[in-house]
Design a protein around this nucleic acid. Structure first.
Lengths: 162, 162
DNA sequence: GGTCAGGTACTCGGATACGGGTTGTCCGAGTTCCCAGGG
DNA sequence: CCCTGGGAACTCGGACAACCCGTATCCGAGTACCTGACC
């Protein structure tokens, strides 16, 4: 699992705490957690390409959420950073070598659909994706605020002081 | 996701088809699907360390299943090959930099337990693990035999011919 | 013929290189703001 | 005082390296089998 996922999630919550009226640059978001600014910028670009955040160049520019936090699921962020392809890709090794079934049923159009192993792995990964899609970032924000009530205000004050 | 997981799963089913009374060498299993023999051997070693298969050296040696296929879940194989640590590891970036909470609540013993993001990601990964643990390899074998009834016999014949 | 010793072939097991991908860094295009000058 | 033009600073965006893990390979330790000689 890519490290950038965690950074992107925290950044989204931080953007929500910052408020929708003010853009925050990648450098600010990175400094808040001592992260490499240029690399975090790369992740935020991925979020921008996915339509999760919007970016504005120039002074007073930066990133801001493209839609309310409730409309962003964990799955959206993971897919934006990690890429949409699934983690387990079936290489169809049973179609290779002597075990590739007799020359009678060489039907390449069936692909991985009928590979029992690929089917089971895909099912498990689907459960993972569903669990990610079931939680939106607003729920995470609420839980974070319960455990650290002062965090939003501290972030806003720190951003205003620069 | 590591490529070796797919190889290990197919190898386990093939071992079941081969029968419990005869060990199959890594070279045979690899040749059956045109896989690199030495590397598959590495994966099988991981399965042996996890207690999923047993290995016997020397001529007529090789690998055989350590327990019936019903007692082996997808999760067992994945954990053996990929390692037991979870894919998403929380780096606790919120504990770093200016956002590390005031000096008042610097409680390092709480760790990632109360990080809302880590909690949510772990929950999703738990769903994945449960889905993997819910299916055992015997179910997969049955499904594979329904779709390719001749496969077990073909494998046994090919092994006997060498 | 039976038994035993030696050699051989085959197996796993871990130590050893190679490559692709994630991680990390840098510089350029574009926009906005600020400031000075003129009307 | 108000307007305008130029410069400077700041931002994203993509192009460019470095490191690490998954991939692949090789050789050594150990074991069982087979062969041949001997009793």
């Amino acid at each position: 699992m890519s490290e950038g996922v965690e950074w992107a999630l925290h950044s989204c919550v931080n953007l929500a705490w910052s408020g929708p009226d003010r853009a925050v640059s990648a450098a600010r978001l990175a400094a808040w957690h001592d992260l490499p600014a240029a690399y975090l910028n790369k992740q935020l670009q991925a979020l921008a390409r996915a339509g999760i955040v919007t970016s504005t160049p120039g002074p007073r520019g930066g990133f801001r959420l493209a839609r309310p936090l409730e409309a962003i699921s964990l799955m959206d962020v993971v897919a934006a950073v990690e890429g949409p392809e699934e983690a387990f890709r079936c290489a169809e090794i049973r179609q290779q070598g002597p075990g590739a079934g007799g020359p009678a049923d060489s039907a390449p159009e069936k692909d991985a659909a009928d590979c029992a192993i690929a089917h089971a792995m895909t099912r498990a990964e689907l459960a993972w994706r569903r669990a990610l899609a079931a939680q939106n970032l607003d729920e995470i924000r609420q839980q974070a605020e319960r455990q650290a009530p002062g965090a939003p205000e501290r972030l806003r004050a720190w951003l205003a002081a620069r």
